[in-house]
Amino acid sequence: MISREYAFLLNGSTLASGRPVLELADIGLRFGGIQAIDGVGLAVTQGTIHSIIGPNGAGKSSLINCVSGLYRPQRGRISLHHGDGAVELVGRKPHELARLGIARTFQNIELFRHLSVLENLLLGRHTRMSLSLLPALVWFGPARRQEIAHRALVEEVIDRLALQAVRHRPVSTLPYGLAKRVELGRALCMQPALLLLDEPMAGMNAEEKEDMARHLLDVNRLAGLTIVLVEHDMDVVMDISHRVTVLDFGKRIADGTPDEVRSDPRVIEAYLGRDVA
């Protein structure tokens, strides 16, 4: 897939590999009478693919929404470590978190549907672009220079994800698998410190899944990005993850390497049920 040398680093984190980049401690999230997440803690290590799995309703997506600021947990702390210290994420708005380096994709594709692939990707550059009115009204000068400068990075992302042929297509006309890939691209254009993916392979056929897995591995191994992955497809999760956290009914029931998790009796019970006899 890689077809040229790249000038831009997609990884926005300067943390040394192997250090914890994201730490969740004792997260509690309640919707009315339902405890969606109950005392979950986990640490994501810089440079890894960290999967969060669990049966339906286990609280996986809610956890991602807490980290990206869409939900505000009533309890617990979420800290993001940079090269020079940590920041607390709970209580910040989603757009502030984006600025701090949190990028995400959604379970159902949430692209800007009237815009082209290129415009969607350029929107990934939003936090790093100037929004001054006057240059925008004039166009010639700073605004045009800025568009061209950011286009260079966007083109690298297009190249990495093999989106060249659909660059100018409106995203609403794209097939499902490609649209998912554009959403990944939009997150990559942010040069994030941490990439949160909510079921990037949901609803895909085998070939699309393989493509997506390949892209995720490229992003992780070659670009060095830390990925937090929520995914239902166990084969994919076990194949590409460095570490797996298992949730069930809002509680953490296991955490470890794919092999450790696979043989954990509590995980087997959560997925397959227990013999009542």
Binding site: H95, L115, H126, A136
Partner: peptide, 27 residues
């Protein structure tokens, strides 16, 4: 001109999807 720069694109992002716009950093 505005709508071929970052400023105008952020307006269109809000039109198309507010939540997604906020998660890519649009205030």
């Amino acid at each position: 001109n505005v709508f071929r720069t970052a400023l105008g694109r952020s307006f269109m992002a809000v039109r198309d999807h507010e939540v997604a716009a906020s998660t890519i950093g649009v205030n």
